[in-house]
Computed example of a mutant assay.
Amino acid sequence: MSGAIDRAAVSVRAVSKAYGGVPAVDGISFELAPGSFVALVGPSGCGKSSLLEIMAGIRGADRGEVVVGGRRVDRPIRSVGVMFQEDTTLPWRTVYRNVAFPLEASRRDRHEIAAKVEAALRMVDLWEHRTMHPAALSGGMRQRVSLARVLATDPSVLLLDEPFGALDEQLRLRLGLEVQRICREQGRTAVLITHSIQEAVLLADRVLVLSGRPATVVQDLEVPLPDHRSADQLGDPRVAQVVAKVWASLAY
């Protein structure tokens, strides 16, 4: 194994997947540096979610492999956290107990659970709402509960499949920036699937552009912005340049 691979937080190696004999993902390879934030963009139905599910160990690849922290991923593992677009809060549990749920399921010590839940809720600014039930929360707040639940398990890799896609554009961008900040501060590696090219460029260090099905990587673009991001940078000419390159790649 090469030194470059040793240093990668995530290695995706020649991954392919087909459904009923129809290819969905075709020989995709890339590596993610520790603490990096990478966005995946591509046409609807091109296989982005299938790729993310393979990276999470939820779905198996037909060929190739995914390695996280030196370990081959063939089932869900604790070091990889996943957040989807759907509201996954449990309506009968309070905010606090929603976040505690995966920790309770893994039989963590109650003192450890209390400390991790409080830290995660404070990270997403929901500690004051810990006794509320999801029905009393806005859609954005429920997604922050879901984010806190993932963060409480302390994953080194965070996989985000359009987590705020159902929210209005302003709130979606604000929560995306919040996730980006948390990942930066804690050194987590993140992969974001999004249909918004501007969101991808504003949040990510790299944008991987996928082709139409079967998905292949047609462009790997570096985003030349500082680590700290804000909505004001949407007007930065460097953002416009990368956005234009992404559009050109999607027309490939």
Rank of each mutant, 00 (worst) to 15 (best):
A9D: 10
L151C: 04
A215L: 06
V10T: 06
L160R: 00
A204K: 03
V150K: 00
P34Q: 07
G235C: 10
A39D: 09
R149P: 08
K245Q: 14
V217D: 13
I193G: 08
G3C: 06
Q143K: 12
R72F: 05
G3N: 09
R110Q: 05
R71D: 14
E65N: 00
A4F: 15
F101A: 07
L103Y: 01
M141F: 15
V22Y: 07
S249Y: 09
F164I: 03
R122E: 13
L202E: 09
A231C: 04
L221D: 08
R142W: 10
E86I: 02
K245D: 14
Q198E: 15
S16L: 11
L52Q: 03
T194K: 04
L51P: 05
S44G: 10
D125M: 09
P23C: 06
D236I: 06
L126F: 11
G139F: 14
P91D: 10
R78Y: 05
A135G: 15
A18V: 10
A251C: 04
W127C: 01
A120V: 13
W247I: 09
D74N: 11
L250Q: 03
A251Y: 05
R142F: 05
G187K: 03
W247H: 15
S79I: 05
E185H: 04
A114T: 09
D161F: 14
L158V: 08
V15I: 07
S211W: 06
T131Q: 02
M123E: 14
P226E: 13
A115D: 15
V157K: 06
L210V: 11
A105S: 06
V246L: 03
V117H: 08
E222W: 08
L210Q: 07
G81P: 07
I58G: 01
M1K: 01
R72L: 02
L177F: 13
